[in-house]
C-alpha cells in the first residue's frame, strides 16, 4: 500500500494509496465549485447500461439532477460522494427499486439492450432478475442457507429438478467464495452466519439468478476489514462475468476495486473518469475537496 506511482493504468490500480492524491499540488485550472455540469468521461465505447438525463423526485423534492452516465461491460463503476448526494438513489434507478418507495418519481431514459428500462411498459420482475442488487446491510432471509440461494432460481423457474437446483446453489456459493465455509451446514439458518459471510451469502443469492449487472449499495459498510477484503476480492473476480456498480463511502475501496469512479454532489453528477485520474488529478474543485478530505 505504500507504493507511490505517478502513472497509473486503470486496470492495475489496486495498490495505489488514495492519499497519493494529496501529494499532487492543486492545479490552477480546476473547474470552479459552482459548476454543475458533469465533466469527464461519462460515455464508454461498449456500454451495458446507458443513462440519459435522469432526474429523481421524492414528492416535490428533487434528489437527482440530469444525470447521464454509462456502465461499461465487465467494468466496476464506483460512485462516491458525501451522504445524501443521491448516489444510492441513482443506483436504485438501475433496477427500478425506487418503485417501492411511495411518492418517488424518475424521469429520463435508462437504456439497456435497446430498451428504456425506466419506461412504464417494462416489467420490473425480469429486469430485477437481470440487474441484481446487494444491499448495505446483509439481509439474508430467515431461512436456511440453501433456501436463501434457492429462492431466486425457484421464483424464476430456473431449475427443473432438485439436482439442477443443488447445482445452482453449489455454483453460486462457490463463486461467492462461501462454499467451503458452509457446505456442511446448508440447512442451517442464513441469519446465523457472521456479517461477512451473510453479505457473501447475499451476493451468492444475487448471482444465483444469473444477472448481467450487479448493483452494490455500500456492501462493506457493515463489515470488518477482513470480510471487506474478501468481498472486494470477490468483486474483482465477478467483474469477469458481470458489470458491477458500487456505491461506497470508502475512497480506498473505490480506488482499490473500480475502473471508473463517479463523484456525486447534492444530486448532481459532478465528475466521472478513470479511477486513477479521479484520485490523482480531479478536474473539478468539488471532487478535489472531497477526495482530499476538505469536504464530506
Amino acid at each position: 500500500m505504500e507504493t507511490t506511482k505517478t502513472e497509473v493504468e486503470s486496470a492495475d490500480f489496486e495498490n495505489t494509496h488514495v492519499e497519493d492524491a494529496v501529494e499532487v499540488p492543486p492545479s490552477e485550472d480546476r473547474v470552479p465549485r459552482d459548476h454543475r455540469e458533469t465533466i469527464g468521461q461519462l460515455r464508454v465505447s461498449d456500454p451495458r447500461i446507458s443513462c440519459t438525463d435522469v432526474n429523481v423526485y421524492y414528492g416535490d423534492k428533487q434528489a437527482i439532477y440530469n444525470v447521464s452516465l454509462d456502465l461499461g461491460k465487465n467494468e466496476i463503476l464506483a460512485m462516491i460522494g458525501p451522504s445524501g448526494c443521491g448516489k444510492s438513489t441513482f443506483l436504485r434507478c438501475l433496477n427500478r427499486m425506487n418503485d417501492t418507495i411511495d411518492g418517488c418519481r424518475v424521469t429520463g431514459t435508462i437504456n439497456m439492450d435497446g430498451l428504456d428500462i425506466n419506461s412504464k411498459e417494462i416489467d420490473v420482475v425480469p429486469l430485477r432478475a437481470n440487474v441484481g442488487m446487494v444491499f448495505q446491510k446483509p439481509n439474508p432471509f430467515p431461512k436456511s442457507i440453501y433456501e436463501n440461494i434457492a429462492f431466486g432460481p425457484r421464483i424464476h423457474g430456473l431449475a427443473k429438478h432438485k439436482d439442477e437446483l443443488d447445482e445452482i446453489v453449489e455454483t453460486s456459493l462457490k463463486r461467492a467464495g462461501l462454499w467451503n465455509e458452509v457446505k456442511d451446514r446448508l440447512e442451517q439458518p442464513g441469519t446465523g452466519l457472521s456479517g461477512g459471510q451473510q453479505q457473501r451469502l447475499c451476493i451468492a443469492r444475487t448471482i444465483a439468478v444469473e444477472p448481467e449487472v450487479i448493483l452494490m449499495d455500500e456492501p462493506c459498510s457493515a463489515l470488518d476489514p477482513i470480510s471487506t477484503a474478501t468481498v472486494e476480492d470477490l468483486m474483482m473476480e465477478l467483474k469477469e462475468h458481470y458489470t458491477i456498480a458500487i456505491v461506497t463511502h470508502s475512497m480506498q475501496q473505490a480506488a482499490r476495486v473500480s475502473q471508473r469512479t463517479a463523484y456525486f454532489h447534492l444530486g448532481y453528477l459532478i465528475e466521472v473518469g478513470e479511477t486513477g485520474q479521479i484520485f490523482r488529478d480531479p478536474r473539478h474543485q468539488l471532487t478535489e475537496d472531497y477526495i482530499t478530505g476538505r469536504f464530506g
Partner: peptide, 9 residues
C-alpha cells in the same frame, strides 16, 4: 428489498 431485488413479485 432483498426479495424485490431478486425479481420477486
Amino acid at each position: 428489498d432483498g426479495a424485490y431485488g431478486l425479481g420477486a413479485t
